[in-house]
Write a protein that binds this DNA or RNA. Sequence first.
DNA 1: AGACGGGTTCCATACTATGGAACACAGGTC
DNA 2: GACCTGTGTTCCATAGTATGGAACCCGTCT
Lengths: 265, 265
Amino acid sequence: MSNGTQSIDRAAELLSLVVHADEPPAFSDLVDETGLARSTASRVLNALERHHLLERDNDGAFRPGPMFAAYAARHDPIDAFVRTAKPVMAWLGERTGETVNLAVPHGSAVVQVAQVDSTYLLGAVNWVGVDVPPHCSALGKVMYAHDALPLPDDPLERPTDRTVADVASLKRELARVRRLGYAETNGELEEGLAGVAAPVRFRDGQVRAALGISGPDFRLDESAKDLGDLLVAESARLSHLLGSRQPQLSNQATHQPGTTQATSA
Amino acid sequence: MSNGTQSIDRAAELLSLVVHADEPPAFSDLVDETGLARSTASRVLNALERHHLLERDNDGAFRPGPMFAAYAARHDPIDAFVRTAKPVMAWLGERTGETVNLAVPHGSAVVQVAQVDSTYLLGAVNWVGVDVPPHCSALGKVMYAHDALPLPDDPLERPTDRTVADVASLKRELARVRRLGYAETNGELEEGLAGVAAPVRFRDGQVRAALGISGPDFRLDESAKDLGDLLVAESARLSHLLGSRQPQLSNQATHQPGTTQATSA
DNA sequence: AGACGGGTTCCATACTATGGAACACAGGTC
DNA sequence: GACCTGTGTTCCATAGTATGGAACCCGTCT
């Protein structure tokens, strides 16, 4: 697989461990996890520190270095978020065949920031950038339910006659969303269009995004519960990738390998 | 200096070139800049790609990989910004001996996000988090002057009798700020307190932060022009670190080495 | 003092990275 | 079509670099 790059492989493995760690790992942690000789680890880590790829905090633990900060400072955080979310979305797309959406709150609106298209011919079209009333979309309901978006005022827009009619009813539904862990819409934005969405938590534990799928109600309805649970699990996984310590949902039956970009082979 | 880490040094040099580049460099660019053998560069770059430290875009050019995105997605962008700015601020602190401030706009207010303390006993105290009226501070004036902050309405707060009295006068001063490149305050916030500040541009070219120094007027007044020019130069350097392409101010007489964390030794 | 954990430095050795050359591939040019 | 030229990857014998065991250093606990 790799040829003539042993030392770089080792260095990259160490880097990866540090970058993806929840707590800055100590020298010994890294030695244990990699199985490297202490001398080798020391040499490599010092080289990485010399090159600003790592730095040691006051306790001597290793943290990502100035080079990562420099990257973060000159790149759009939304872009980084999307790139982190893409593998999860891609897998959801493969698994369900439906359109997958990722959205963040912006002011009092919801904006789609990424999408993976349906593999069906009949599927939700590309929504990125399109403005929809949050109370008509599963993504928006998730945001409302977790205080990622301020609740709207009462004359609610009603694009269809299934749209939730007033803030009082909306609040009742939001309670259900919190209880189930996911939100649904069914023909509330457009005749025949259904959606399911779950919250994404950032490092601080706050819900700052929602991950959802959408498609025709006849396909989504029958498996709404399964899709909801699937989304909850995958959102939790994404949250974890973003550093949230929310208890990772336990064991998902079919958990795919190779999607998390962690400790390399 | 380095022992037994030749290949890691080379890998890190390549990484650094890619991360700090303005445009994603092509394979040949990297070969030329590093002077490595093409075979070696190829091997190393492929290893870095395999480990998600780099990725190749559609043109085959190299960009920072998912590992950088993962870091950026799980860290506060402000924090990354501050960490990038710290070396510049530290040098300004050493050079001038005065308190150095870094601020960003937040709503219609200015918040200090980092500070390096004066080496004098009499100096500005720590302002991080403290709210001051923008029109009384050099940092705020810089923001107003470059549309980083919406102009205030007319009954302006007047903490001292030297405070600029109304929006009309403020506008006149802002024109001067744009012309000079830096802003000053002199006893406008507090008797005897003076400050100088210059704009920091982000990758998109917008002013989104200000870098300033503050201290007693008797020390700052006499060298205001020099300090202003110094700040303009250093702010430009910081802007450049953040990826702004604004023409870097040409040759600053005493330019220190070792502060930019670029292409390692 | 003595023992221990955590980390760095040393050094002979073995194995890994190296780079020149050959190769592969994609455009250009005639 | 034949022939370059530019880009990048693969091969392989060799040199030289990374390796890891052991010695060492240092702070802390007993």
